[in-house]
């Protein structure tokens, strides 16, 4: 081929490929704009203050009310419960994998964590219904086990792989010299882990937690299937709850397009979007902080 033709193709491909970089930006922008546009349409009908402070979510009642608080509190309650389980288990596992497990054990544990990450959320939700739910019901003498506790346990399973992987990277990334220095002055392995390694890896571990939280807040199918979905204000872990994600999933399928109810679902999605954005950005911040700390 003639050299000029080749160079023209090169230039063409270059601009084409550069253009695809814009696609991801426009997708993020598009998502943001879509949420904003529909939320604004919602606020034409319902005042933002009523939305943020309302304690009742009842869009289909005779006097439709759109209070996000019960949904928000449900989401936070389930996420909190999930983290109470997943954080200690995740960090403990990460520490075990990176500091105590031998090479062969590690070669089994790593694929096991990857496998856990690969299980579809709907399958975990299914087990919440058929296995965990009846178990909780039997233990607590409730009529059924579809409640916040069930959702929290399932969500902890969903976010464990994220937490373990990121935390293990962080613990692994602590320079061996730190550990050697600590062991060298007579500290035990445990003292080294809890007083030197984990503090040094702290930003990475915080990042792991943040990414785990982000995963839990945004998860839909498991909570939709396992928490009972009562849209009332939750009082505790044994109450049925309904998260933001579950509300969108349940109601979007049945609502007529371009009604206040329809717009309201975008408004709660907007809140969810902001929530995950903040959490993920915080995670990103800590990951970078960890990287800088160790490259210095």
């Amino acid at each position: 081929m003639h050299i000029q033709a080749r160079e023209r193709i090169d230039g063409l491909v270059r601009s084409l490929i550069k253009a695809t970089g814009l696609i991801v930006i426009s997708i993020l922008g598009g998502i943001f704009f879509m949420l904003l546009w529909n939320t604004v349409s919602f606020f034409i009908h319902v005042s933002p203050l009523d939305f943020i402070t309302g304690t009742q979510w009842n869009p289909t009642g005779r006097h439709a009310t759109y209070g996000i608080l019960p949904l928000l509190v449900s989401t936070c309650l389930v996420t909190l419960g999930a983290m109470a389980i997943a954080i200690p288990l995740g960090i403990g596992t990460a520490a075990f994998m990176s500091e105590y497990a031998g090479k062969r054990l590690k070669n089994i544990l790593k694929p096991a964590v990857e496998m856990l990450a690969a299980v579809p959320s709907v399958a975990i939700g299914f087990l919440g219904i058929v296995a965990l739910g009846p178990g909780i019901a039997r233990l607590t003498q409730l009529s059924n086990g579809l409640n916040a506790l069930n959702g929290a346990i399932l969500l902890s399973v969903m976010s464990l792989p994220t937490i373990i992987t990121v935390a293990e990277d962080a613990i692994n990334g602590v320079p061996a010299t730190y550990k050697e220095a600590s062991l060298g002055i007579g500290a035990t392995k445990w003292q080294t882990l809890t007083r030197v390694t984990i503090p040094a890896a702290a930003p990475g571990i915080v990042a792991a937690i943040m990414l785990g939280v982000g995963r839990a807040i945004g998860e839909t199918m498991t909570v939709l299937m396992a928490t009972g979905n009562a849209a009332s204000f939750p009082k505790g872990f044994f109450d049925s709850v309904r998260t933001i994600t579950a509300t969108i999933a349940i109601e979007m399928g049945e609502v007529p397009y371009q009604t206040t109810h329809y717009y309201s679902l975008f408004a709660i999605a907007g809140i969810l979007f902001l929530l995950t954005l903040v959490v993920n950005m915080a995670g990103e911040y800590f990951v970078n902080k960890f990287r800088k700390f160790h490259s210095a």
Partner: peptide
């Protein structure tokens, strides 16, 4: 930055989009 944020967007929001 856009990619990192997109990866964190809940899947149900992709459904709305």
């Amino acid at each position: 930055a856009a990619i990192r944020n997109l990866a964190g967007v809940p899947s149900v929001i992709y459904g709305l989009f």
